[in-house]
Amino acid sequence: MDRRVSIAARVARGLEALAIGLGLTWRAMLRPKVTVQYPVEKKNVSHRFHGLLGLPIDPETGKDRCIICFQCERVCPSRCIHIEATGKGKERVLTRFDIEMDKCQYCGFCVEVCPTEAIVFAPHYEASTYNRANLLYTLDDLHKLAPKEPIATGIVRTNGRKHR
């Protein structure tokens, strides 16, 4: 800083800056608050939110819509989906549909490739637990997690068709 500036001038400049700063502070106090008291209040997430994954139950059939095509298992970059099935043709049933949520990176590729929209994002994001074993989500967990109301599926459709 310039040594020639007198002390009085420096004090004046300091006070001026203080006044400007305090003026801003006072004005800011009158504005609405933006803070969310998180664990008590929760923010709503958008309908595209990448939350936990779920397999919704189709109300017509009472089953999930998975056709066991293994596409999500194949596309997963962190290889966290494990699917096993028995039977042949139309009798094929899922025996295992596990997602290791500790490996999942919430990229949404599985949701994107699924031809029947059987796997979707649920609007939940609080997945922390004390035990790593809790992060292995089995078929039942995924059924329970799935959102109750119909999911907005328009997101992957653009100009009337689903992109592959």
Partner: peptide, 24 residues
């Protein structure tokens, strides 16, 4: 961001040849 991509930090929104979804 969240409304468009679904993510807040990690989006995975761009694709080779375009973007994943249209703007809401």
């Amino acid at each position: 961001f969240e409304q468009v991509t679904g993510g807040r930090l990690h989006h995975a929104y761009y694709r080779i040849g375009g973007v994943y979804a249209d703007l809401p």
